[in-house]
Structure formats: C-alpha cells, structure tokens
Amino acid sequence: MLTDRRFGAIAGLPAQPRAPHRASGAIAMTAEEIRQVVLDILADIVPDEDISNLKDDVPFREQLELDSMDFLDIVMELRKRYRIQIPEKDYPALGSMKSTVEYLEPLMRNINNK
C-alpha cells in the first residue's frame, strides 16, 4: 500500500500534528540543550547542509543558506515545539547560535525538554 508522501518526511511534515509542549513538570534547559534544540530545527530547515561544525559566534547567514522565510521557520518551530513567542522586534537576536541561545535561555528556563 502506497501512502501519501505529502504526509511524511519528503515534505518535511510530521506524520501527525504535533501537540504543543506543556509547561507542567518543567525543568530548566541548559544552554547546551537549547543549542541542540536550535540545531534540530536547523537540521529540518537546511537539510542539505552540514551543520555539525557550526561556529556559534559567526552569523548563521555567513555559514548557511538561510533567507527570511527560513528565519520565520525558526520562529515558527520554536512556537510549535515549545510555545515560545518571539516578537518581531527580537528577530535580530536570532542572528547567530550564540545570540540565539543567550536570547532563549531566560525563555526556556521552565520548558519541558522531553
């Protein structure tokens, strides 16, 4: 039985809608865990690129092919996966891994990272 490929990995869509993470039973995420969260999101957004050697203090755009729609994907995925709301005025904080982790740390202190 063939299944609709638009359900799955080819389209980059989850097989089922993701339920928003709940804050109950939350634990603080470390900077390293937050970095991994961002790496996981980037792996979905730029699946053709090697992100294993990403330099934290160099802007993403100097290392990866990212356009404005891709940055909106980072914002959307943080919203979907962790219910984090990032106002538009704060988007410049997502310029590099270092600045992103620093920006997210206070926001992800009480996030369930499971």
């Binding site: 869509l13 809608p17 928003p20 729609m69 919203r79 979907k80």
Partner: peptide, 22 residues
C-alpha cells in the same frame, strides 16, 4: 495539509505556515 496540522494546535491560526501563500 495546513488545516490538518492546525488541528493539532486547536485551530490557533498563529501556527498557520508562512509558506502557505507562496
């Protein structure tokens, strides 16, 4: 696809993709 995914967020349209229009 978008409506299917949105169902997982109780039809909150802030989870509607910016990719939908293009």
């Amino acid at each position: 696809n978008e409506i299917y995914l949105l169902k997982g967020y109780d039809y909150d349209t802030q989870y509607w993709s910016h990719h939908h229009n293009p």
